[in-house]
């Protein structure tokens, strides 16, 4: 009986393919793309200012709203943060990823990779709020800064309007530190994977042909690991773009995209505007992914 069934399927490979692929494809279509589609539809509705009811008529007026100066500023602020978080993550990740890929012994490599990924196993909220405590006025970071007599430097940095605030825990700078910490593993792993695939003989060949270490880095290592950096940046950039917990917990009262979406769909009940604001990062990321694909980033995922 079972034998006959196996033979039946063996003779119909297309049926087997269909049976295996149908459930995940259905899920993908309905849950993933379906919800995204609903989001898109909703963004073309608008809310009646007087009654607060959603009017289900096609309009572009909601999109016009997101180009208001206040919302434009939110987009700019979020994108700037995502940009700097990405750049910084890449710079911090590279030496560590290089060490893990090229120098660490097998044993050490395992431990380092566990070390990099272990924070991902603990609650994101707990980590964010721990950082709030670390960065607080009376927190451990201030304690060490005072210990080294650097409080003046900290106060000077915090006095800058664009990055500062009353304390690190309530400043864009503090938010930036937490973002970098939280998303760093997502950069380290793809960069390390990319570096792992650069044969040592290429590094030796460059050096053999007269390239000094910096030249070797610039002409061989970086170009070959670049797809990994792009792959990592997809994570750090998009995750920063959509996050609303970190700006809420750390930072000042200035909104980020995620927060704006959260408040529009929640207390304000303005689903259309929330949907329109969400389409912003979606569009940004689609453009980003298209560029990334051109740069060969998906070979390193």
């Amino acid at each position: 009986m079972l034998n006959k069934l196996s033979t039946y399927f063996y003779q119909r490979p297309r049926l087997v393919l269909f049976l295996f692929l149908a459930p995940p494809l259905l899920y993908m279509l309905v849950v993933y793309l379906g919800s995204l589609f609903l989001l898109l539809i909703n963004s073309f509705y608008y809310i009646d200012d007087f009654s607060g009811l959603i009017i289900r008529e096609f309009t572009l007026r909601t999109y016009a709203q997101i180009f208001s100066p206040a919302n434009r500023e939110i987009f700019a602020r979020t994108a700037t943060m995502a940009f700097f978080v990405t750049i910084t993550s890449a710079i911090i990740s590279f030496p560590l990823a290089y060490y893990i890929a090229k120098y660490a012994s097998r044993r050490l490599k395992t431990w380092l990779l566990i070390g990099v990924t272990i924070p991902l196993w603990s609650s994101y909220l707990v980590r964010v709020y721990s950082w709030k405590l670390i960065l607080a006025q009376e927190g451990i970071l201030s304690y060490f800064i005072n210990l080294f007599g650097l409080n003046g430097v900290l106060q000077w940095i915090l006095s800058f309007e664009s990055i500062g605030g009353s304390s690190l825990a309530l400043s864009p700078l503090g938010m930036f530190i937490v973002f970098v910490y939280i998303w760093l593993p997502y950069m380290i792993i793809p960069v390390q994977t990319a570096l792992e695939r650069v044969p040592n003989s290429l590094v030796e060949a460059a050096s053999d042909l007269g390239a000094k270490p910096l030249q070797t880095f610039r002409t061989v290592i970086l170009p070959m690991a670049f797809p990994g950096v792009i792959a990592g940046s997809i994570f750090t950039f998009s995750l920063t773009l959509g996050d609303f917990i970190i700006p809420l917990a750390v930072g000042n009262s200035k909104f980020f995209i995620g927060q704006a979406v959260y408040s529009y769909q929640g207390t304000a009940g303005n689903i259309p505007l929330a949907a329109a604001m969400t389409m912003g990062p979606v569009v940004i990321m689609i453009i980003y992914l298209l560029i990334a694909r051109r740069l060969g980033a998906f070979d390193a995922l």
């Binding site: 044969p199 003989s201 290429l202 053999d208 170009p223």
Partner: peptide, 20 residues
């Protein structure tokens, strides 16, 4: 002396050509 200061060049077993 590091490799880049020796007037010696190598043909590698796997050729080690730069793929990019």
């Amino acid at each position: 002396l590091p490799p880049y200061e020796r007037s010696v060049n190598t043909v590698f077993q796997d050729y080690a050509l730069f793929p990019h």
